[in-house]
């Protein structure tokens, strides 16, 4: 029987041609207590690709990308991001690597004691030691323009709507010019119109910043709009991997319900 990794290797090379791989996971396992969340995950992320990971709630999608940035330590397996072995990095090296990865959280995770401007300035000040007012201002305005919210800079996060928060959250990661973007449920809790706007933003970010992205979602329309390639996660295993149109035809009892609405 084909192991998932072998299957993955075959298909990846088939679909993405010879684009370089920027991140790869091999046989990643993670369990919390007795519960196995990730049983054996392997995947590759290619340059400038939008990879959607589709799965039901509680299948460990978020855990997977948190393992990739070292927020959660995987029990076993290999995680290689931008040429670094994430699991063996020192804290300082890990911070170095994280600067090149943008992470958009499900709840957007804005620092609610700071204004939008301070939110965006925070990573600049803490990581790049940029303190000049003019420079900060330019970077902040540019990032806000890219997400289409240039006149919210003096608002508090509590004054913003859910969609705006998402955008600001994305702007905060973009300000560090990441090479890889990880989106955790970008459209969760948003109405279809706002969700579509976010999906368009995800695409425009790829165009503008030339990023490779992993998009975690259970929203099939999000997957349709943003994906180059989809990996379906079922019971902690990567079950199916294909384009959206191929996946639509699936007869798999675990995946078919996604498309049957």
């Amino acid at each position: 029987m084909d192991t998932s990794a072998d299957y993955l290797k075959k298909s990846s090379t088939a679909k993405m041609g010879n684009r370089p791989i920027v991140a790869s996971l091999r046989h990643v396992k993670k369990s919390f207590g007795a519960m196995e969340v990730l049983r054996d995950i392997s995947l590759d992320l290619h340059q400038n690709e939008n990879l959607v990971i589709l799965g039901r709630s509680g299948t460990g999608k978020s855990v997977l990308i948190k393992c990739m940035v070292g927020l959660i330590r995987a029990d076993t397996g290999e995680i290689n991001v931008l040429g670094c072995d994430v699991r063996s990095l020192t804290p300082d090296q890990l911070d170095e690597l994280r600067l090149q990865i943008g992470f958009s959280f499900q709840g957007s995770a804005l620092y609610d004691s700071m204004t939008v401007r301070q939110n965006l300035e925070f990573p600049l000040k803490r990581n790049k030691a940029i303190f000049k007012k003019k420079e900060l201002e330019d970077l902040v305005i540019n990032a806000l323009k890219d997400v289409g919210l240039e006149n919210t800079s003096d608002k508090m996060p509590s004054e913003l709507s859910g969609g705006m928060k998402k955008r600001i959250g994305i702007a905060r990661t973009l300000i560090l010019k990441p090479k890889i973007m990880l989106y955790d449920e970008p459209t969760a809790g948003l109405d279809p119109i706002t969700a579509t706007e976010i999906n368009e933003l995800i695409l425009s970010v790829r165009e503008k910043y030339n990023t490779s992205s992993i998009i975690i979602t259970h929203d099939i329309s999000c997957a349709r709009q943003t994906s180059d390639r989809i990996i379906a996660l079922v019971n902690g295993l990567n079950k199916e991997e294909s384009t959206f149109d191929e996946l639509k035809q699936t007869k798999d009892p675990d995946l078919a319900p996604f498309f049957s609405y």
Binding site: F103, F105, A109, N127
Partner: peptide, 11 residues
């Protein structure tokens, strides 16, 4: 997840 957000931006 604000703490996580700081963590992943290396802050």
């Amino acid at each position: 997840e604000q703490i996580d957000a700081m963590e992943v931006s290396g802050s």
